[in-house]
């Protein structure tokens, strides 16, 4: 297992280098000089040139690239114009927020997905079952941003139950620990639900079909004939078999969510990686854009790796060959 992980990490290094190179080239070759915004037009042209030189914008792209890679080797990601801070520092302050949101979303997704899937099986062919299978499909296909603004309209603007944006209420620093956590949770619910819904729908539907299939398989019938209790059969045989797709789905969403749920974070003003990326792009903050891509790429690769490992842990039949 350790060898597998190490192998995967080593083989993803060229991938990340390639990714960053592509983004670097795209960002630097396209029109619009990043310094235009940051230099007052009154500055004499000679001085503006000098400033460009200071940031290395006058050199060839290869030179700039070399300079940047050299910085990365020393652990520097460059300097963000808009934040007037180091890129690494900006990213480290945003990443934990994305981690909180993604973690909660995955939790919601598992709880919702599994409980609805089980309910549908328990009441097979009933009203609930129909809702899960048809409603699941509908929810899975709804546009995320539209669901987000719908929820905002209903729960935030009309009913006023949940706050519409940010992570904390104002003055939350002075709350007690429990009050602080509850406040955070309240801010989390809407965005996490939006992120969790499609995954939960997928899990519920897959779980339902799989479980129904498994329950009719020979080994379950054998177990029944041996007189094992329904509860035991369900928990130890059927469920463990049916959970595999759940884990795969969760694994793939980890990477996506951690890279920053761009649309959801933007709508809910969540101060995470997604919103950081968008604002960097709008402000043409080149070093920050490249930094965000680097992080997003690494996270997606790690997410896929986690999915693979979990998959293997649950189902040892899958061989590690060829990876």
């Amino acid at each position: 297992m350790i060898r597998l992980i190490l192998g995967r990490i080593v083989s993803s290094i060229p991938l990340i280098v390639g990714l960053v190179t592509i983004v670097f080239i795209i960002v630097r070759l396209l029109p619009g000089d990043p310094m235009t915004i940051y230099i007052s037009p009154a500055v004499p042209p000679a001085v503006a040139e000098q400033l460009r030189a200071e940031f290395g914008f006058d050199k060839s792209i290869i030179h700039q690239y070399g300079r940047w890679i050299w910085g990365v080797m020393r652990g520097e990601l460059g300097f963000s114009f808009t934040h007037q801070r180091g890129v690494a520092e900006v990213i480290t302050s945003a990443f934990p927020n994305t981690l909180i949101l993604a973690g909660t979303a995955i939790l919601f997704q598992l709880i919702l997905g599994i409980s609805l899937g089980l309910l549908a099986v328990r009441f097979h062919k009933s009203f609930i079952d129909k809702i899960v299978s048809v409603g699941g499909l509908i929810i899975y296909t709804l546009p995320t941003f539209w669901v987000a603004i719908l929820l905002l309209y209903v729960f935030s603007y009309t009913l006023g139950i949940f706050p519409s944006s940010q992570m904390h209420s104002i003055g939350a620093d002075e709350f007690g620990r429990i009050e602080y956590l509850l406040d955070l949770l309240k801010h989390l619910i809407l965005p996490a639900t939006v992120l969790a819904l499609p995954g939960a729908a997928a899990i519920a539907r897959y779980l339902r079909t799989n479980l129904l299939d498994v329950l009719h398989e020979q080994f379950i019938i054998n177990a029944r004939s041996m007189g094992l209790s329904e509860r035991k059969i369900f928990l130890s045989y059927a469920l463990s078999n049916a959970l595999i797709p759940t884990i795969t789905i969760t694994g793939t969403t980890i990477g996506i969510l951690l890279a920053g749920a761009i649309v959801t974070e933007t709508i809910f003003s969540w101060p995470g990686m997604g919103r950081l990326t968008v604002s960097a792009i709008f402000a043409r903050d080149y070093p920050l854009i490249i930094g965000c891509t680097l992080v997003a790429g690494i996270v997606v690769i790690i997410g896929n790796l986690i999915a693979d490992i979990m998959y293997r842990v649950v189902d040892p039949r899958i061989r590690t060959e060829g990876l």
């Binding site: 940051y38 230099i39 007052s40 037009p41 009154a42 500055v43 004499p44 000679a46 001085v47 503006a48 000098q50 400033l51 200071e54």
Partner: peptide
């Protein structure tokens, strides 16, 4: 000029 202040134009 080497610092490149944004308020340089006030010194025109």
């Amino acid at each position: 000029p080497e610092i490149g202040s944004v308020r340089q134009d006030a010194l025109e």
